[in-house]
Amino acid sequence: MSDTAVFNAKSPWSGGKSPFAVSPGKLMMWVFLLSDAFTFSSLLTAYGCQRFLASSDTAPMKWPDPSVVFNHFPFLHEHLPLLFVSLMTFILIYSSVTMVLAVEAGHRMDKKSVLYYMFLTILGGIAFLSCQAWEWTMFIGGTHEGGIINGVQVFGANLNVNQYGPAAFADLFFIVTGFHGFHVLSGVVLNIIIYVNVAAGTYERRGHYEMIEKVGLYWHFVDLVWVFVFTFFYLI
């Protein structure tokens, strides 16, 4: 009996401490992110499926070329494909970096630096959302020329019809970038809550800044999803 107890005590699964060497909260954040990754994978795979569906020569409508649809840049009238969305990517990567720097400052218990980097992260999130709002406005508004869809002149895009190509194109654009944008919005809200808590000294009293790491995981995940949205919607 006592032999078994000794043997078990050596196993990482014998209880008393986390076998994953992370706190329960962080582990659950990872599991949540895994499920969220499944959701986004399903959405992006559905996009691929619809795109393959429109790829045959007999298809009534061709899948639009992203460089023709997304070629606007604020205050510039030339057609500049990919430039604006690259800027959005840069903003999101940069806000990810400031988030890691906030985590790093948290390890040093440096409250002032945490506040500074969290502020930059929130700013990056808001900048990204503003860019996306502009992108959606351009997409929904469409061009002056519009497009002929099934013999009817169509301007811009909605869930039923769009000037660019198959209805599924705009539908998937709205759901995938919309769902991602909603994640960014939730991230910004979480970041603001954390910011207020840091400012109030909650984590200083608790003795560690682990909450920043948990929210940071979520924030980096949003960045990770954007990498694939960027690849499939804009590059390919």
Partner: peptide
């Protein structure tokens, strides 16, 4: 799904 999409397109 990509395989299915290809078949459906035909």
């Amino acid at each position: 799904l990509l395989y299915e999409g290809g078949v459906w397109s035909l």
